[in-house]
Nucleic acid binder design. Structure first.
Length: 868
RNA sequence: GCCGCUGUGGUGGAAUUGGUAGACACGUUGGACUUAAAAUCCAAUGGAGCUUAAAACUCCGUGCCGGUUCGAGUCCGGCCAGCGGUACCA
């Protein structure tokens, strides 16, 4: 008795691949075309791998193995994004050095990944916390600094008292920290910034050359947020040498600007405020400063503001217009001041209504008494002695008014971006130190010969609490000397954010031991750009935008040869937990329909098993009742207790089954719920494949598998499968590729003779999906070498040709019968229609009415239109 | 609110350019093997109707309403629901 036993097969082949360095990438052979297939490297957490990781990793592994067999030189590496908050928080709690935690976690991750049989070149492993790695992260920072793209600024930052650190905008969700969900407040601090805004236009334009999902490109476009309009200067009443400068996308509505608004932080507020208004304005500003970002952008969009008492002059109308302070204008966008056109801007309209400010119509087409009109129309009430916009369309009016503004020297066409500069420092221990010292003359970059700047040992990892990092408490590290002048200096105590290391790791894989720069320029030219990059959609904007930014900077420095790093991007969809059924009981203990529950209803949730429920119409109900229940799957989380551990799956069903199931679940990009019985399903398939080759009574090769001339039907089955699997891998449709493999095996199992030539090709196309089993059976067929570099079978159309084909025959668009036509006649209209009309099941419909039209699509269908 | 994606059996999902909806799996039911179970194998399985039963047949069916077409899951218009992103960006 010998059954399919992944527990013995899989470690055997993992050992073989590792000992023989089967997947070591050869850099010297540049005759082959290259293919660089990259995974988003993981943060090695203490919790280990979850089933979401192997989803993308299996997809790329299939591609990597497929490309190798198709003659490509494949670069398929793996590494660790190992700086980050969790290790540091653990250190704060336990005193364990993050380095130790990180090493332990990496060990775990590596073991888990290797147990899944991924064909990584493990000799290229990188680790962002390795000084030999972050030396070059620091080196790249110096490049940024050199180019004037890194600067210090006092910026209101997201200060999280609980974490004792500052967070990036992206790490703040709904006014709370992404990690831990702690409250975040605004606090001005001296910070390192990266001038990503200088690259806004290129980051936007170059999206067009990328083969990325349109949705991701759109998200990046929205994030960059380009808008076209004009800058306009408004002179002030009683203050001669200053103006309020605004950015507007609607210069065409200038005649309708009836007031202005300054953000509470705007530098001109103080000067404009009259003594009568002083108390009120100061109180308002103080209140606004205390508000967190959450409060300021709260769902509650009720406008607040106060009049400064000051006036500006609308350059178009010459009217004096009041200047207000309101927190609906943000200091961080544009100039921090706006011209308000209540007739044609919803926010201004709302504000003007509330405070009784004049609303003027300057674009025809709406009812400005009822609401702001933001649509297209024709200008009205828009002329003075020098310029008239009346009767012009919005777009013509924009051009005309900008010309006028430029002539007068009080404005010009202008472009603005939502994208802000990147807040690049963190007050943490576990990150890359900045290669910067502070001297009497200000911040100064250290020479590259000093790199890497390593982290000192500290006694405690707690943030200093003042907002400075724990590094600030290590006097002997902070105190240093300027290597150039020998004068005393202080080290920068901030560290870089986790994004830094992940911004360029794909370059380091190309030559992880290179000592003369981040990457060997020769090898870079061969391997870049990354041909395929697979990862989660959660990195749609930030990681991918930051990495693109760094890459462009390196491109400008001549370090890399391509303007974009990642040519094709695929996002895998999240894997949810198993479907859960939940019923609800009210306080009296009676079941209530799920549809009747809103957030005010007090209910108790009751978990149900699958056999306690049934489907009624389009909803699920308690079996035998009419009580609707909730049926859905949830994101896996510890608290919900629905996390699937890949180790358990491997132990029970094997790595090949896990790989296969993750790919069989559905389209890669889609969100899909986990189902353990689905794993059993693919496991059964693998067992059947095993039995197709191996006689389970003897454990030897099955008698049916032998050298023999394949039949026509066998060749057809094989080549159909080769075609389908090849096309589906190319199109990332792994689920349907697996289905084709199943169909083939179901058929092959029934053959009394399974010719070796046929079965070999089947193993070759199975290999990318279930490599352990494929190698095992390949060996059982008498092969001694790994199959990883065998040539991928070529599909030949000649084997697919059938002798006859079946046409569906429709009457009035409904299928009423089928006819079989020989291949010789299948395009012969008379023959096909004759057979169709003679078919008894069709005949009846013809007899019942009059045939008025015959539709014949060769190779597809027959449709007869009958009337009466 | 705005932008994007997705709605197909009891479940996950298939279905080239519009051409036999439900491939492949899961689950369920029945059967075979077995002392029994597991494993394995075979068969049935969208819903409703008709029929003693079977075969055959009929009607309905891809979120909803309408349209184009000989023919629509697929194309067009209008909705609804779920998910993701974003949110006073001037």
């Amino acid at each position: 008795m010998s059954e399919y036993n992944p527990a013995s097969i899989e470690p055997k082949w993992q050992k073989f691949w590792s000992e023989n360095k089967t997947f070591k990438t050869d850099d010297t052979d540049k005759s082959k075309p290259k293919y660089y297939v990259l995974d988003m490297f993981p943060y090695p957490s203490g919790a280990g791998l979850h089933v979401g990781h192997p989803e993308g990793y299996t997809a790329t592994d299939i591609i990597a193995r497929y490309k190798r067999m198709n003659g490509f030189n494949v670069l398929h590496p793996m590494g660790w994004d190992a700086f980050g908050l969790p290790a540091e928080q653990y250190a704060v709690k336990t005193g364990t050095h993050p380095k130790i935690t990180t090493e332990r976690n990496i060990e775990g991750f590596r073991r888990q990944l290797q147990a899944l049989g991924f064909s990584y070149d493990w000799d290229r492993e990188v680790n962002t916390t390795d000084p030999a790695y972050f030396k070059w992260t620091q080196w790249i920072f110096l490049k940024l600094y050199e180019k004037g793209l890194a600067y210090q600024a006092d910026v209101p930052v997201n200060w999280c008292p609980e974490l004792g650190t500052v967070l990036a905008n992206e790490e703040v969700i709904d006014g709370k920290s992404e990690v831990g969900g702690f409250p975040v407040v605004r606090k001005p601090m001296r910070q390192w910034m990266l001038k990503i805004t200088a690259y806004a236009e290129r980051l936007l334009n170059d999206l067009e050359m990328l083969d990325w999902p349109e949705s991701i490109k759109e998200m990046q476009r929205n994030w960059i947020g380009k808008s076209t309009g004009a800058d306009i200067s408004f002179s002030l009443v009683g203050i001669d040498n200053k103006t309020i400068d605004v950015f507007t996308t609607r210069p065409d509505t200038l005649f309708g600007a009836t007031y202005m608004v300054l953000s509470p932080e705007h530098p001109l507020v103080e000067e404009l405020t009259t003594s009568e208004q002083k108390n009120e304005v100061e109180a308002y500003i103080e209140k606004a400063a205390l508000k967190s970002d959450l409060d300021r952008t709260d769902l509650n969009k009720d406008k607040t503001g106060v009049f400064t008492g000051g006036f500006a002059i609308n350059p178009a109308t010459g009217n004096q217009i009041p200047v207000w302070v309101a927190d609906y204008v943000l200091m961080s966008y544009g100039t921090g001041a706006i011209m308000a056109v209540p007739g044609h801007d919803e926010r201004d309209w709302e504000f003007a209504k509330k405070f009784g400010i004049e609303i003027v119509e300057v674009i025809e087409g709406g009812d400005i008494n009822a609401e702001a009109f933001t649509g297209d129309g024709v200008c009205v009430n828009s002329s003075n002695s020098e310029v008239s916009l009346d009767d012009l369309s919005v777009s013509d009016a924009k051009k005309t008014i900008i010309n006028w503004l430029e002539e007068k020297g009080i404005g010009s066409g202008s472009i603005n971006y939502k994208l802000r500069d990147w807040l690049f420092s963190r007050q943490r221990y576990w990150g890359e130190p900045f290669p910067i010292i502070h001297t009497e003359d200000g911040p100064k970059p250290l020479p590259t010969s000093e790199l890497p700047i390593e982290l000192p040992e500290v006694k405690q990892y707690k943030p200093s609490g003042t907002g400075e990092s724990p590094l600030a408490t290590i006097e002997e590290w902070v105190q240093t000397t300027d290597p150039e002048t020998g004068k005393p200096a202080r080290r920068e105590t901030n560290t870089m954010p986790q994004w830094a290391g992940s911004c360029w790791y794909y370059l380091r894989y190309i030559d992880p031991d290179y000592t003369l720069g981040p990457v060997d320029p020769e090898k870079e030219k061969y391997w870049m750009p990354v041909d395929l990059y697979v990862g989660g959609a959660e990195h749609a904007v930030l990681h991918l935008l930051y990495a693109r930014f760094w890459h462009k900077v390196l491109y400008d420095c001549g370090v890399v040869s391509t303007p974009e790093p990642f040519m094709k991007l695929v996002n895998q969809g999240m894997i949810l937990g198993e479907m859960e059924f939940t019923a609800f009981k009210n306080t009296a203990g009676d079941y209530v329909d799920a549809r009747e529950i809103d957030e005010n209803t007090e209910v108790e949730s009751v978990k149900l098993t699958e056999d306690q429920v049934e489907k009624k119409g389009d909803r699920f109900v308690l079996k035998g009742t009419d009580t609707g229940i909730d049926a859905r799957s949830f994101k896996m989380s510890k608290s919900r207790g629905n996390v699937i551990n890949p180790d358990d799956v491997v132990e029970k069903y094997g790595a090949d089954a896990l790989r296969l199931y993750e790919m069989f679940m559905g389209p890669l990009e889609q969100v899909k719920p986990w189902s353990m019985s689905g794993v059993e399903g693919v496991n059964r398939f693998l067992k059947r494949v095993y039995r197709t080759f191996i006689d389970d009574k003897t454990g030897k090769l099955h008698d049916a598998v032998k050298e023999a001339e394949p039949s026509k039907a066998q060749l057809k089955a094989l080549h159909e499968t080769i075609k389908k699997v090849s096309e589906d891998i190319d199109g990332f449709r792994f689920n349907t590729a697996i289905s084709a493999l199943m169909i083939f095996n179901n058929e092959a199992m029934r053959w009394d003779v399974r010719p070796v030539s046929i079965m070999k090709d089947f193993l070759l196309i199975l290999n990318p999906f279930a490599p352990h089993l494929a190698e095992e059976l390949w060996q059982a067929l008498g092969n001694e070498q790994t199959m990883s570099y065998e040539k991928w079978p070529v599909f030949e159309a000649k084997y697919l040709v059938a002798d006859e084909m079946t046409y569906a025959v429709q009457v009035n668009g409904k299928v009423r019968g089928q006819i079989t036509v020989s291949m010789d006649d299948h395009k012969n209209k008379d023959v096909v229609l004759g057979l169709a009309k003679a078919e008894p099941s069709v005949r009846r419909y013809l007899d019942a009415g009059t045939l008025i039209k015959e539709i014949f699509v060769p190779g597809k269908i027959v449709n007869l239109v009958v009337k009466g």
